[in-house]
Amino acid sequence: MSQVQSSNSVIDRREFVSALIAKCPESLIVTGLGSATYDVFAAGDRDKNFYLWGAMGGAAAMGLGLALAQPDKSVLVITGDGEQLMGIGSLATISAQKPANLTIVVLDNGHFGETGMQFSHSSLGTNMSAVAQACGITNSYQVKDMADLKRVEQNVNARQGVTFAQIMVKADDLPRALPSRDGVFVKNRFRAALGLAPF
């Protein structure tokens, strides 16, 4: 086993997500499969949430398509380290487009939580906010304290540039909170909330 980064993370993921959404009530949210989907649902179901239960690696890219289509609204992707690692190239794709209204929040517990808490690359040497920075997302940073929630919240609401926020969360195994798995329902509900016809 290679070196494992010691984790001193103190942030409770559900507390962070719930507080962030409360401060960004109008944002359009896309969640990455697994724990991030549960965290967002646990904060309260919303029509403007789109929950992924699969399509691993696609959350940030989906946020990109949505952000380009809705430039006057804040788009918030909330995902985990494992999900974002699978779509790591999408950070370069997003950087090339620079949608000012897109924020990517990665809840980084350093593990694949859904499959038995195996270490992810984030525990094994990869610094995801540095990767995002090197991809050209200049506003990329780590959040190690609940007090820094304010910075993320301001970035989401300001819509003045792509933001990548890596939230160092505790590696807890929390009870699941399960939103609808009916993708057609969730899609049409989301579109209706934007005044769009179903389909």
Partner: peptide
């Protein structure tokens, strides 16, 4: 290319 499949879904969610 798989990024494009996800971008397509996001675009449609947002009406494009």
């Amino acid at each position: 290319e798989e990024e494009g499949v996800a971008v397509a879904g996001g675009a449609w969610l947002g009406g494009q």
